[in-house]
Protein backbone atom coordinates (compact mmCIF):
# COMPACT_ATOMS: atom_id res chain seq x y z
CA UNK A 1 0.00 0.00 0.00
CA UNK A 2 1.37 3.41 -0.96
CA UNK A 3 1.90 6.35 1.38
CA UNK A 4 -0.66 9.10 1.25
CA UNK A 5 -0.13 12.73 2.13
CA UNK A 6 -2.75 15.11 0.78
CA UNK A 7 -2.91 18.76 1.71
CA UNK A 8 -5.55 21.22 0.56
CA UNK A 9 -5.07 24.89 1.45
CA UNK A 10 -7.57 27.67 0.80
CA UNK A 11 -9.23 25.80 -2.04
CA UNK A 12 -11.90 27.77 -3.90
CA UNK A 13 -14.30 26.58 -6.55
CA UNK A 14 -17.23 28.32 -8.19
CA UNK A 15 -19.78 27.31 -10.81
CA UNK A 16 -22.53 29.88 -11.26
CA UNK A 17 -22.07 30.62 -7.55
CA UNK A 18 -19.22 29.96 -5.14
CA UNK A 19 -19.31 26.35 -3.87
CA UNK A 20 -16.04 26.04 -2.03
CA UNK A 21 -14.75 29.29 -0.56
CA UNK A 22 -11.89 28.28 1.70
CA UNK A 23 -11.31 24.59 2.17
CA UNK A 24 -8.37 23.33 4.16
CA UNK A 25 -7.84 19.63 4.72
CA UNK A 26 -5.00 17.19 5.34
CA UNK A 27 -5.28 13.44 4.72
CA UNK A 28 -2.81 10.72 5.72
CA UNK A 29 -2.86 6.94 5.58
CA UNK A 30 -4.46 6.59 8.97
CA UNK A 31 -7.15 9.22 8.28
CA UNK A 32 -10.81 8.19 8.25
CA UNK A 33 -12.71 11.34 7.43
CA UNK A 34 -16.44 11.80 6.98
CA UNK A 35 -17.72 14.94 5.31
CA UNK A 36 -21.35 15.79 5.93
CA UNK A 37 -23.43 18.60 4.55
CA UNK A 38 -26.63 19.61 2.90
CA UNK A 39 -27.36 18.79 -0.72
CA UNK A 40 -25.61 21.26 -2.99
CA UNK A 41 -23.13 22.26 -0.30
CA UNK A 42 -20.21 21.15 -2.50
CA UNK A 43 -19.37 17.79 -0.89
CA UNK A 44 -19.09 15.92 -4.19
CA UNK A 45 -17.14 18.78 -5.74
CA UNK A 46 -14.65 18.61 -2.89
CA UNK A 47 -14.36 14.84 -3.29
CA UNK A 48 -13.83 15.22 -7.04
CA UNK A 49 -11.09 17.78 -6.43
CA UNK A 50 -9.47 15.42 -3.91
CA UNK A 51 -9.77 12.61 -6.47
CA UNK A 52 -8.15 14.69 -9.24
CA UNK A 53 -11.16 14.46 -11.54
CA UNK A 54 -12.15 18.09 -11.17
CA UNK A 55 -10.03 21.22 -11.10
CA UNK A 56 -10.23 24.05 -8.57
CA UNK A 57 -10.13 27.80 -9.13
CA UNK A 58 -7.57 28.83 -6.56
CA UNK A 59 -5.69 27.60 -3.52
CA UNK A 60 -3.05 24.90 -3.20
CA UNK A 61 -3.34 21.17 -3.39
CA UNK A 62 -0.37 18.90 -2.76
CA UNK A 63 -0.80 15.20 -3.54
CA UNK A 64 2.09 13.16 -2.15
CA UNK A 65 4.38 16.12 -2.69
CA UNK A 66 3.11 16.83 -6.20
CA UNK A 67 1.67 20.33 -6.53
CA UNK A 68 -1.60 19.95 -8.41
CA UNK A 69 -2.22 22.46 -11.17
CA UNK A 70 -5.45 23.24 -12.87
CA UNK A 71 -6.22 21.76 -16.31
CA UNK A 72 -3.68 19.01 -16.04
CA UNK A 73 -4.51 15.35 -16.11
CA UNK A 74 -3.18 13.30 -13.19
CA UNK A 75 -4.46 9.95 -14.43
CA UNK A 76 -1.46 7.98 -13.13
CA UNK A 77 -1.72 9.48 -9.63
CA UNK A 78 -5.43 8.74 -9.66
CA UNK A 79 -4.95 5.21 -10.95
CA UNK A 80 -2.30 4.06 -8.51
CA UNK A 81 -3.27 5.96 -5.36
CA UNK A 82 -7.02 6.48 -5.32
CA UNK A 83 -9.91 4.09 -5.10
CA UNK A 84 -13.27 5.67 -5.99
CA UNK A 85 -16.59 4.45 -4.65
CA UNK A 86 -19.70 6.17 -6.01
CA UNK A 87 -23.26 6.30 -4.77
CA UNK A 88 -24.44 5.26 -8.25
CA UNK A 89 -21.78 2.49 -8.38
CA UNK A 90 -20.66 3.54 -11.88
CA UNK A 91 -20.09 0.00 -13.06
CA UNK A 92 -19.81 -0.47 -16.81
CA UNK A 93 -22.95 -2.36 -17.87
CA UNK A 94 -21.37 -4.08 -20.87
CA UNK A 95 -18.77 -5.79 -18.69
CA UNK A 96 -19.19 -8.67 -16.26
CA UNK A 97 -18.52 -8.18 -12.55
CA UNK A 98 -15.05 -9.73 -12.80
CA UNK A 99 -14.21 -7.53 -15.80
CA UNK A 100 -15.38 -4.43 -13.92
CA UNK A 101 -13.25 -5.35 -10.92
CA UNK A 102 -10.15 -5.93 -13.06
CA UNK A 103 -10.65 -2.83 -15.21
CA UNK A 104 -8.01 -0.67 -13.41
CA UNK A 105 -5.38 -3.37 -14.02
CA UNK A 106 -5.77 -2.72 -17.73
CA UNK A 107 -4.13 0.65 -17.30
CA UNK A 108 -1.49 -0.06 -14.66
CA UNK A 109 1.46 -2.37 -14.26
CA UNK A 110 1.24 -1.91 -10.46
CA UNK A 111 1.00 -5.18 -8.54
CA UNK A 112 -2.66 -5.93 -7.98
CA UNK A 113 -4.26 -7.25 -4.82
CA UNK A 114 -4.96 -10.96 -4.63
CA UNK A 115 -8.13 -11.28 -6.66
CA UNK A 116 -9.47 -14.37 -4.87
CA UNK A 117 -8.83 -12.87 -1.45
CA UNK A 118 -10.63 -9.68 -2.44
CA UNK A 119 -13.57 -11.60 -3.87
CA UNK A 120 -13.72 -13.67 -0.67
CA UNK A 121 -13.56 -10.55 1.46
CA UNK A 122 -16.49 -8.97 -0.35
CA UNK A 123 -18.44 -12.23 -0.72
CA UNK A 124 -19.00 -11.74 -4.42
CA UNK A 125 -17.61 -14.99 -5.84
CA UNK A 126 -20.98 -16.20 -7.25
CA UNK A 127 -21.46 -12.86 -9.00
CA UNK A 128 -18.20 -12.73 -10.94
CA UNK A 129 -19.42 -13.86 -14.35
CA UNK A 130 -22.77 -12.10 -14.09
CA UNK A 131 -23.64 -8.90 -15.87
CA UNK A 132 -23.80 -5.96 -13.49
CA UNK A 133 -27.33 -5.12 -14.64
CA UNK A 134 -28.61 -8.30 -12.96
CA UNK A 135 -27.26 -7.36 -9.51
CA UNK A 136 -29.00 -5.76 -6.55
CA UNK A 137 -27.79 -2.39 -5.22
CA UNK A 138 -25.79 -3.96 -2.40
CA UNK A 139 -24.13 -6.44 -4.76
CA UNK A 140 -23.28 -3.67 -7.20
CA UNK A 141 -21.69 -1.62 -4.44
CA UNK A 142 -19.58 -4.57 -3.28
CA UNK A 143 -18.37 -5.11 -6.84
CA UNK A 144 -17.61 -1.37 -7.12
CA UNK A 145 -15.64 -1.53 -3.86
CA UNK A 146 -13.67 -4.54 -5.17
CA UNK A 147 -12.81 -2.49 -8.27
CA UNK A 148 -11.66 0.42 -6.12
CA UNK A 149 -9.41 -1.87 -4.07
CA UNK A 150 -7.88 -4.04 -6.82
CA UNK A 151 -4.77 -1.87 -7.20
CA UNK A 152 -4.42 -1.53 -3.41
CA UNK A 153 -4.88 2.27 -3.26
CA UNK A 154 -3.55 4.53 -0.51
CA UNK A 155 -6.86 6.37 -0.22
CA UNK A 156 -10.51 5.53 -0.76
CA UNK A 157 -12.81 8.36 -1.78
CA UNK A 158 -16.39 7.31 -1.21
CA UNK A 159 -19.26 9.49 -2.39
CA UNK A 160 -22.43 8.48 -0.52
CA UNK A 161 -21.43 4.79 -0.69
CA UNK A 162 -24.44 3.68 1.35
CA UNK A 163 -26.93 6.13 -0.12
CA UNK A 164 -28.86 3.50 -2.06
CA UNK A 165 -28.36 0.57 0.33
CA UNK A 166 -30.48 -1.19 2.93
CA UNK A 167 -29.22 -1.34 6.55
CA UNK A 168 -27.69 -4.80 6.09
CA UNK A 169 -25.59 -3.75 3.10
CA UNK A 170 -24.78 -0.41 4.75
CA UNK A 171 -23.20 -2.33 7.61
CA UNK A 172 -21.16 -4.49 5.22
CA UNK A 173 -19.84 -1.42 3.41
CA UNK A 174 -19.02 0.37 6.65
CA UNK A 175 -17.15 -2.69 7.98
CA UNK A 176 -15.14 -2.90 4.78
CA UNK A 177 -14.14 0.74 4.94
CA UNK A 178 -13.06 0.30 8.53
CA UNK A 179 -11.05 -2.82 7.69
CA UNK A 180 -9.27 -1.00 4.87
CA UNK A 181 -8.54 1.96 7.14
CA UNK A 182 -7.05 -0.41 9.70
CA UNK A 183 -4.79 -1.78 6.90
CA UNK A 184 -3.45 1.75 6.45
CA UNK A 185 -5.70 3.01 3.70
CA UNK A 186 -7.01 6.55 4.16
CA UNK A 187 -10.79 6.92 3.79
CA UNK A 188 -12.61 10.10 2.89
CA UNK A 189 -16.33 9.59 2.97
CA UNK A 190 -19.15 11.84 1.94
CA UNK A 191 -22.48 11.07 3.47
CA UNK A 192 -25.82 12.39 4.56
CA UNK A 193 -25.93 9.64 7.10
CA UNK A 194 -24.94 11.02 10.52
CA UNK A 195 -24.67 7.51 11.98
CA UNK A 196 -22.09 6.56 9.38
CA UNK A 197 -20.40 9.95 9.70
CA UNK A 198 -20.08 9.59 13.43
CA UNK A 199 -18.28 6.25 13.01
CA UNK A 200 -15.39 8.02 11.22
CA UNK A 201 -12.30 9.14 13.14
CA UNK A 202 -12.82 12.73 12.01
CA UNK A 203 -16.08 14.33 10.94
CA UNK A 204 -16.40 17.57 9.02
CA UNK A 205 -19.44 19.51 7.97
CA UNK A 206 -19.21 21.46 4.75
CA UNK A 207 -21.03 24.70 5.37
CA UNK A 208 -20.78 27.96 3.46
CA UNK A 209 -17.99 26.54 1.37
CA UNK A 210 -15.79 25.74 4.41
CA UNK A 211 -15.05 22.57 6.33
CA UNK A 212 -16.00 22.76 9.97
CA UNK A 213 -14.64 20.00 12.16
CA UNK A 214 -17.29 18.36 14.38
CA UNK A 215 -15.24 15.60 15.96
Amino acid sequence: MCNIELKLEHIQKSYTRPVLTDVNLSVFNESYIAILGKSGSGKSTLLNILGLVESFDSGEYCFNGVKIRQAKDYAKLRLENIGFIFQAYNLIPTLSCAENILLPTLYSSKKQRDFDELVELLDIKPLLEQKVTTLSGGEKQRVAIARSLILDPGIILADEPTGNLDPYNKEIVFDLLQKENKRGCAVVLITHDWDLGNKAKTTFVLEGGRLIEKK
Partner: peptide, 16 residues
Protein backbone atom coordinates in the same frame (compact mmCIF):
# COMPACT_ATOMS: atom_id res chain seq x y z
CA UNK B 1 -19.66 8.58 -22.77
CA UNK B 2 -20.58 7.02 -19.45
CA UNK B 3 -18.04 4.23 -19.98
CA UNK B 4 -15.33 6.75 -20.85
CA UNK B 5 -16.21 8.84 -17.78
CA UNK B 6 -15.90 5.80 -15.50
CA UNK B 7 -12.65 4.66 -17.06
CA UNK B 8 -11.15 8.13 -16.76
CA UNK B 9 -12.32 8.37 -13.13
CA UNK B 10 -10.67 5.10 -12.16
CA UNK B 11 -7.40 6.26 -13.67
CA UNK B 12 -7.32 5.63 -17.42
CA UNK B 13 -5.20 8.31 -19.06
CA UNK B 14 -6.18 10.17 -22.23
CA UNK B 15 -3.73 7.94 -24.10
CA UNK B 16 -5.38 4.80 -22.67
Amino acid sequence: KFEIGVKRAIGASSWD
